[in-house]
Write a protein that binds this DNA or RNA. Sequence first.
DNA 1: CTACTATATGCCATAATTGGAATATATCAT
DNA 2: ATGATATATTCCAATTATGGCATATAGTAG
Lengths: 98, 98
Amino acid sequence: MAENLYERKALIFKALANPVRLEVLDMLIDGEKCVCEIQEKLKKYQQAHISKSLIKLKEAGFIKDRKEGLNVYYSLKICCLGDFFKCLNNILDSDTSN
Amino acid sequence: MAENLYERKALIFKALANPVRLEVLDMLIDGEKCVCEIQEKLKKYQQAHISKSLIKLKEAGFIKDRKEGLNVYYSLKICCLGDFFKCLNNILDSDTSN
DNA sequence: CTACTATATGCCATAATTGGAATATATCAT
DNA sequence: ATGATATATTCCAATTATGGCATATAGTAG
């Protein structure tokens, strides 16, 4: 585990610092999905890669999983993600001009 | 520049995915600071490293700079950062147990 | 048991990030 | 002009992340 608070926070942002994982999170915003559904939407990536992405998001504390037979269902664990991402859009909308 | 939206968002999170840059951002939350003040607080790191951290945060759109004589002053450019980080604490507080 | 399906794990080459050391630039004072 | 100070840039070795491929595991069906 990371020693100090800033390192722990950085680990959380590292989990978000990847387009595939961000897209996965986005998919989960409208409810629980099984790994197979996520794979279906992200066909450009290998199954193994999706699986690793989900595990990384889980380790960072963003999502949780639930097994049901052969399937594994993932869902958001953090309710404030919506607001979290709204701020992001402010950044994206504002120009990079100083 | 990154092609799609998720890649652009990932770039923003990459800028946050580092303890030094997070600590710098934290220092700027209570107002504009000159590089020298930031260095003073982060003595464990080299001047060059602090400078690079500031530039990365600026490129990501989080902060802006202003020159005054020999000094450069940096300040937050995004007003919603406070809320942004509040959500983080939710994640940090919640256990990693599924 | 075997066969099948869904998901996870291990290995690996490539690419990106980190942070130190040295150097460059810009501004100010004399 | 020279020298001093604040900040930025370049170079580089070490570490870490990315994403493909192959394989393993776990649950289900027959």
